[in-house]
């Protein structure tokens, strides 16, 4: 009876806290956030910051844009957190949010500046690009930015977290066959663009 009273009236429920594993999981952190502990969200963000930022960077090719989109993504995820379902996993869920944000961003950019290729212009002058990146990696990043946005997204998701086509299909909410087509076409285009690096000429 004492335990029941404690469970009903005590905010820190002893039997939940005594279990060790749940404190580590994303689902546990999300529950804390939904109960009003905002700091738990900071922990969650730290876990997924790299993933979200890297997707945004590969899609936009610019540090500033990637930072803006990452922030926007985490804010959106925060407001929509109660709609998150544990069984789908936070990684795929947040990947879907940043993917859609990036695709919208690219579409908007295209509408605003149809003639210029902004991302590519900025790529070579960005001083914060890591210096150790060799020429080939640079060429790949440039070639990726030349891909159509959805092909670019599929390629990024494929190699970033090692997702397979089925997982990418779930993230992007498109059929698996379409993912495969996008990925194959992306690879073919990249191969064509990088061919002269490999075979000289």
């Amino acid at each position: 009876m004492d335990g029941i009273i404690k469970y009903v009236f005590h905010r820190e429920r002893p039997f939940v806290l005594n279990r060790k594993q749940p404190t580590e999981t994303d689902a546990w952190l999300i529950r804390r956030v939904l109960k009003g502990e905002r700091n738990a969200y900071a922990l969650l963000m730290k876990r997924y910051q790299k993933l979200v930022y890297t997707i945004a960077y590969r899609m936009t090719g610019r540090v500033e844009d990637a930072e803006d989109l990452t922030q926007e993504c985490f804010l959106r995820a925060y407001t929509a957190l109660s709609r998150f379902r544990t069984e789908q996993g936070f990684g795929p869920w947040i990947s879907r949010i940043i993917s859609n944000l990036c695709l919208n961003w690219i579409d908007k950019k295209k509408r605003e500046l149809p003639a210029t290729d902004d991302a590519l212009d900025n790529l070579s002058v960005d001083p914060r690009r890591s210096v150790e990146t060799n020429e080939l990696q640079m060429a790949l990043q440039e070639a990726i930015l030349r891909l159509p946005s959805r092909h670019r997204l599929v390629f990024t998701l494929r190699y970033l977290e090692g997702h397979d086509c089925r997982q990418i299909a779930q993230i992007m909410e498109i059929p698996e066959g379409t993912v495969k087509t996008y990925l194959f076409r992306a690879r073919q285009k990249l191969q064509k663009q990088l061919r002269h690096f490999w075979h000289g000429g």
């Binding site: 905002r38 700091n39 969200y41 900071a42 963000m45 730290k46 910051q49 790299k50 930022y53 890297t54 960077y57 540090v63 990637a66 930072e67 990452t70 922030q71 985490f74 804010l75 925060y78 914060r128 690009r129 890591s130 150790e132 990146t133 080939l136 990696q137 790949l140 990043q141 390629f155 494929r158 190699y159 690879r187 990249l190 191969q191 990088l194 490999w198």
Partner: peptide, 23 residues
Amino acid sequence: QLHQLAIQQPIPQTDSDLVAQVM
């Protein structure tokens, strides 16, 4: 080669503390 190159693509760094800014 493309496969290997893509796997080894470096992860870009960011200077700003994005988590703090969102918080």
